Amino acid sequence: MHVVELRFECFDNTTITAAEKAINGLLEAYRANGQVLGREFAVAFNEGDFKVRLLMPEKSSLAKRYNSPWVNAALAELTTAKLLAPREKYIGQDINSEVSSSDKPSWQLLYTSYVHMCSPIRNGDTLQPIPLYQLPATFNGDHKRVIRWQTEWQACDELQMAAATKAEFAALEELTSTKSDLFRRGWDIRGRVEFQTKIPTYYYLYRVGGDSLAAEKERPCPRCGNQEWLLDEPLLDMFHFRCDECRIVSNISWDHL
Rank of each mutant, 00 (worst) to 15 (best):
D157S: 06
P129V: 00
L135I: 06
H143T: 02
Q134K: 15
A170D: 15
S177G: 08
K144E: 14
M161N: 12
A170C: 11
M161A: 14
T151W: 07
T151H: 09
G141Y: 10
D157Y: 01
P136Y: 06
Y133L: 05
T138M: 08
F169I: 12
S177T: 08
L175T: 02
D157A: 08
H143N: 01
F183C: 00
T178G: 09
T151R: 10
V146H: 01
T151Q: 10
Q154G: 01
K179I: 03
K144P: 08
P129N: 01
K179A: 09
A171V: 06
D181F: 07
L172M: 14
Q150S: 03
Q150A: 04
Q154M: 03
E173P: 01
C156V: 03
D142K: 06
R148W: 09
D157N: 05
D157E: 05
L182V: 02
M161S: 13
A170I: 13
D181E: 12
G141I: 11
A164F: 09
R145T: 15
T178P: 12
D181G: 09
K144D: 13
A162L: 15
D142T: 06
E152C: 06
A164P: 04
E174S: 09
D181P: 01
L132H: 06
S180F: 01
N140T: 14
A162N: 14
W149V: 02
F183E: 00
A137W: 01
A163V: 03
W149S: 02
A155L: 12
I130S: 04
L182R: 00
H143S: 03
L182M: 03
L159T: 06
S177N: 10
V146T: 15
T165K: 02
A163G: 13
T178E: 07
A164I: 09
D181N: 13
I147Q: 11
L182E: 02
F183Y: 12
T176W: 07
N140A: 15
W149N: 02
F169L: 13
E168H: 12
A163T: 02
E158P: 05
P136N: 07
P131D: 04
N140V: 14
A155F: 10
L135P: 04
L132I: 05
E174H: 10
I130E: 04
E152A: 11
L135M: 07
E152Y: 07
K179C: 05
N140C: 13
